[in-house]
Computed example of a mutant assay.
Amino acid sequence: MARNEEKAQSMLNRWVDMKNEEKRKPKERRPYLASECRDLAEAHKWRSEILREIGVKVTEIQNEGLGEHRLRDLNDEINKLLRERVHWERRIVELGGPNYTKHAAKMTDLEGNIIDVPNPSGRGPGYRYFGAAKKLPGVRELFEKPPEVKKRRTRYEIYKRIDASYYGYRDDEDGILEKLEAPAQDDMRRRAVEELERIKAIRSEAMKMVKSGEVASVEPTAAPAVEVVLFEGVEDVVEEERRLEMEEELERTKVQQEFVAHVPLPDDKEIERMVVEKKKKELLSKYMSEELMEEEQEAKEMLNVNR
């Protein structure tokens, strides 16, 4: 009895499904060309249908046990649906809808990294691989990165990035170092000015005492520093006097010295004659050979001609 009831129930179910199918409208077929669609809502509907088909096929292609031929066919079908989706998205934009291409997914390798494969395996631009199709023979090599070869840098490549910042010449451009060093710099400048004023005062006092022939008396607390300053002041005075005396002596010797020529100097006519002779020799050497000049000289000697 149970068996017959199951059969009847099965037949009843099929009869109910058949009646429901009769009441339904005939299944509308997606247009072959996206340009044939004139309604924005229908364009969204066909795009959603394509996305569902892509999702089903992408889920199916994850199974590595389907075989190489089935995986390749599935991958081709998915790429065909992707191209069709692009046509519908372009049509949606033409009809005034949103632009879905801005947020399109990018291709990834086996590790999930985004890569750019413009024309792999010669199947045209934009061809992509999904799921187990990435591990097929001849496809895995497209996603494998070549091993990086560490190239030894040359001396030029090492030094071309070294600039003034490397040596610390621009450390104070941001103004932070200047603010930190300003108090210490002011303190050092103030101490240097005070020390200079003190030395100037001691040196001027020492100069007065040296000129007057008196001996300067110093306090025991500042004896070493003051003695150095006093000795420096005396040495400066003596050195200045010696320099002045030497300059005066040099001026007197310059006035007393006179130039004496021990060799007779030629006059203007003699200089002019020597210049003419030199130019004559240059012209002769330019237009006459050495043999001709030697024959001319021998002829002059034989004839006793000086000129």
Rank of each mutant, 00 (worst) to 15 (best):
R3H: 12
H44K: 02
R140G: 09
Y32K: 03
V276Q: 15
K279M: 14
V210R: 04
P266G: 11
A225T: 14
V215D: 14
S289E: 04
V139E: 05
V139I: 13
V210H: 07
V305Q: 01
L71D: 00
L292E: 11
D267H: 15
A34C: 06
I61Q: 00
R155K: 10
E219N: 09
A192N: 12
A133T: 01
L284K: 12
Q185I: 14
P120E: 03
L12Y: 04
I158D: 14
R128W: 00
Q257H: 13
L66Q: 06
E239N: 14
Y127G: 08
G112D: 05
D186L: 12
L250W: 12
V93R: 00
P220G: 14
E77T: 14
E298T: 02
G138L: 04
M209A: 07
G131N: 02
W88I: 05
V93M: 02
V218M: 07
V237I: 07
E60Y: 05
D236Y: 00
E272C: 13
H87R: 08
R30S: 12
M188C: 06
P266A: 10
D116K: 09
L244F: 13
E251G: 15
M188W: 13
G55M: 01
A184T: 03
Q185W: 08
R252E: 08
L110A: 05
E240G: 06
M18A: 09
T108Q: 08
E277N: 14
N20C: 01
I50T: 03
P224G: 04
E282M: 06
I115Q: 04
A223T: 10
L283M: 13
L196A: 15
E28W: 03
P183R: 04
S48A: 09
I78M: 04
S165A: 15
V56K: 06
S204G: 01
N79E: 08
D236G: 02
M246P: 06
G233A: 13
T154E: 11
M274D: 08
S212F: 09
P98N: 07
K80I: 05
E181D: 13
L51V: 06
A34V: 09
G96F: 04
E214K: 13
S10V: 08
M288L: 12
L33M: 13
K106D: 04
R140L: 11
E94D: 07
L40C: 01
Q297L: 02
N306A: 09
V86G: 00
S10R: 12
D109P: 06
